[in-house]
Nucleic acid binder design. Sequence first.
DNA 1: AAAATATGCGCAAACGTTAGCGCAAAATAT
DNA 2: ATATTTTGCGCTAACGTTTGCGCATATTTT
Lengths: 336, 336
Amino acid sequence: MAKPIPTIKEIARKLNVSASTVSRALHDHPRIGLKTKERVKKLAGELGYEPNSQAIFFKQQKTFVIGVILPSIREEFFSQAISGIEAVTTQSDYTILFAQSYDDYKREVIVAETMKRQRVDGLIISLSKETTKLQHLEAFKEMNIPVVYFDRVPAGDACHKVSCNMKTGTVEMIHWLFSEGLKRIAIINGPKALFASKERLAGYMEGMQQHKLKVDMQLVEETDFSEDSTYKAVSNLLSLKKLPQAIISFNDYVHMDAVKAALKKKVKVNRDLLFVSYSNLNITGYTSYPPAASIEQYPYEQGKMAAEILFQLLNNKQNTDQSYIRQQLIPKLVLH
Amino acid sequence: MAKPIPTIKEIARKLNVSASTVSRALHDHPRIGLKTKERVKKLAGELGYEPNSQAIFFKQQKTFVIGVILPSIREEFFSQAISGIEAVTTQSDYTILFAQSYDDYKREVIVAETMKRQRVDGLIISLSKETTKLQHLEAFKEMNIPVVYFDRVPAGDACHKVSCNMKTGTVEMIHWLFSEGLKRIAIINGPKALFASKERLAGYMEGMQQHKLKVDMQLVEETDFSEDSTYKAVSNLLSLKKLPQAIISFNDYVHMDAVKAALKKKVKVNRDLLFVSYSNLNITGYTSYPPAASIEQYPYEQGKMAAEILFQLLNNKQNTDQSYIRQQLIPKLVLH
DNA sequence: AAAATATGCGCAAACGTTAGCGCAAAATAT
DNA sequence: ATATTTTGCGCTAACGTTTGCGCATATTTT
């Protein structure tokens, strides 16, 4: 019943040869005779032999597995990103050990440790929004396991990372809004701690200043991404004496909640008040009020690039070159 | 520079004790003296020792990894399902080896083989829509690796599976449509090969017959899930002499494309023609024309149940009981 | 015919960890 | 004081695979 999983040893025993001969025969080693090779391969086929990667990788101190930690796969942004990663790993016969942090720092630490124990060959991670300390990830460096961050990346320079330059993107957005004649531009930003929020804010400031528009901090709101929090932000903006003419939402999800809130307040969306956003997700195409413009952040490409950088690091094991790779994608403003 | 990854051996050497003592000390084995335990744990902490799961699992012939193969994580249904799976695996210190088939049979075969080589302890899979042969998965059984199917399950009885009873759900849907006074009910079904399509069709037939509505096969269309294909299906339905009063779409994605098509044809969606669907995804809440009713298929719960069944099988390794576990969830009709 | 080379295969060690067994010394019971 | 138990630890083998080395036998070159 519980048929034993066929091993090289078993094949060797049945064929009265040594395990090394079987191993070499299966790998077409030149020093093994043709007849022996055939006998081995035939039996291996019949038995349905599958090499035990666990054993091989254990011996080689390599797993051919890379860890991927994302905040939440339910977000289209991340599900596209992981597909980009997968596109690269598949080509190199790597597999993905997957976990979500659910934007929970503690969980991120736990799953990171699990992956460390599993001896992933490398790690690709997009940080949880709570994450400020990086010890759990520094530990990978000490074990010589390369880590590549993407999208939600740490601020410092001492890491490999891929991200979109949201500052540039935001400046471009402001340009466009200005060219449409809109001057009172509000922004619903993410939590201040997020690097992504800082970038957006910096871009907002710069864009406004480039057009000699004075920055009114009443127009800068914040959301923790919950629907309630976004609702509050919209309420605040709509209760200003001088109403904003445009609202930039942190991403398409915030955008959708913001529109929902505005509709409740009887705002004529995209007529009285223009809504624009980041991410450019497919789903907004199905909604009643897609953003008038959205900044494409290329999640698939970001994932792909992160994976490519990781493989570059894996193949440069000698690590002669200690510099850090930092790639920035130029986001694109997409008009709808 | 390339600091060696700390091992038990290294700790043993530095402390002048044997490797077995270190191993036992770290596991709080009663036969190890208190002082020794402390010395070992202290050094292990300083060195940042992490047990090498690869080695342990190799020895134990167990990986504490389960494979998960899904058609596409971009679909909210599957991203919810994997979260359900993860909720269970986390509790048991298992990790997820993840891959997508992209609804491509060949890819499904390839990733299944990779997982076999990686010696996953078990596999959870939702079949690609192209999959009709199951040899690549039968191979797992021969290696005594349990396989649990969910949602897109094989038709036969000889497997463990979790799914929603879409026949019941469809009958219920017809009941409701009938109670709303609608009698000419069309359905845009999925590819005939899919078990899910067969179930829906069976439910459709039964529902119609229960209300003495004659089944007009002109009202039964089919889509391969591409936007074009769905567009064609809608066109066909709208060119019938007697127009349908309601359209049941295979899922919410088909529904959204169907609505898009209908709008192009100047149909007053949900007024002249009622659109209903399956899946009850969150995103439809943000769309202009959410389905008037949708059948909740509990993806999170399906994933969770599949994982629970898998663990049940893993813990019953003796496999005394050779029966197959088949769970059916009762779908719920949600009105919008 | 002897020497050099090529061919075909086995032996043994190694990767990191665990667990059964055994052995000495210390502690307890007789 | 002797017998028994307990405590603390080391030795060894094992998991499946790969690989350097070595040893025959077979083939080719002088």
